[in-house]
């Protein structure tokens, strides 16, 4: 009888444990589903709100630069300039931030002694905690005006390169993509640095020793081991930074001057990015059809950012598979 009781108790306990497993499993599955479902719903919301306006649009949504949504009976909006300004400012930010972030990450992981590197790394991370409105104010009031001579110099001497030719706003005050790109570069520096630092740090010690034992200098060691090992992580980190730059709103809104004519594909253009355009009109979102035009722009930004992030994940995942 006693035997019988003890014999039957383990299974009872194990079903109890299995129930616990089941609950835990549905909890974690549920939490992950929340993410997927909310992203899906956001996409769906954007699509549903955008479609009526897109149908009422009288000009080509992708190729025209005009934006007039005041008259609901005669909607005319196209995202060409928004796309140009968004892409130009983000790419400029990336071109500036990527080499600097790599330099900082290598310095922190392979040059500075760990004791000093840690506080230094905190300072970089602190940069990520500065509110973007502060970056915007600084860019518009301090950086922009002081960049004016440099911008003028570039414009005067390199105007044969289309990117440095005359823009559609005046150079004075620096309310152009050039300033915005530099501010964005500073804003995305922490994320790129943080990701790169992590992957550079993980370079296997035996690889590093192998290179040094062959008579590699520190830079040669970095070139033969750290950079190949960290390359995919560095690129993935840069893509995350690009995602941030594409979606940055308030700093760009404050910095960029509005332009009366359409984009000339120059760094000295003003205008709006997707995000700053939407934010600028937010107080007037009362008429569903005109609001839908902005939501359509938001949808394009959503898909664009999503694609950039997916690309980053793909590159990071591929690198991981290769390293193992």
């Amino acid at each position: 009888m006693t035997d019988n009781v003890t014999g039957s108790s383990p299974p009872a306990r194990s079903t109890g444990r299995r129930r616990g497993d089941g609950i835990f499993r549905s909890m974690t599955t549920g939490s992950s589903l929340v993410i997927v479902v909310s992203i899906g719903l956001i996409g769906l919301f954007l699509l549903i709100q955008a479609v009526p306006s897109l149908q009422a649009n009288t000009i080509n949504f992708f190729t025209s630069a005009e934006w007039s949504t005041g008259d609901v009976g005669n909607l005319a909006f196209g995202i060409r300039d928004l796309l140009v300004v968004t892409v130009l400012s983000s790419l400029l930010a990336l071109a500036i931030a990527m080499p600097i972030a790599m330099g900082i990450a290598l310095f922190l992981t392979h040059y500075l002694p760990p004791k000093i590197a840690q506080p230094f790394a905190y300072v970089i991370d602190l940069l990520a905690a500065v509110p973007s409105i502060v970056f915007g104010l600084w860019g518009a009031k301090v950086l922009g005006p002081s960049l004016e001579p440099i911008a003028t110099f570039l414009n005067e001497n390199l105007s044969w390169i289309p990117l440095f030719s005359d823009g559609n706003v005046s150079l004075s005050g620096g309310g152009n993509i050039f300033t915005a790109g530099i501010v964005l570069a500073i804003m995305i520096l922490p994320i790129i640095t943080a990701v790169s630092r992590e992957v550079f740090r993980q370079t296997p010690a035996m690889q590093i020793e192998g290179a040094l034992a062959l008579g590699a200098t520190r830079w040669e060691m970095i070139r033969t081991t750290v950079l190949p090992f960290g390359r995919s992580g560095y690129i993935a980190g840069s893509m995350l930074g690009l995602g941030r730059a594409l979606g940055e709103t308030v700093a760009v809104l404050i910095i960029l001057r509005s332009a009366s004519s359409s984009s000339t594909f120059s760094f000295f253009d003003g205008g709006y990015t997707f995000a700053s355009k939407i934010a600028s009109a937010a107080p007037e979102f009362s008429e569903p059809l005109s609001t839908g035009a902005y939501i359509a722009a938001g949808l394009v930004l959503f898909v664009f950012t999503f694609a950039v992030n997916a690309l980053a994940r793909y590159i990071a995942g591929r690198g991981k598979a290769k390293a193992s």
Partner: peptide, 11 residues
């Protein structure tokens, strides 16, 4: 030559 083989994996 080290304890664990350490060829450069990407080369």
């Amino acid at each position: 030559v080290f304890q664990r083989p350490n060829p450069f994996p990407t080369m």
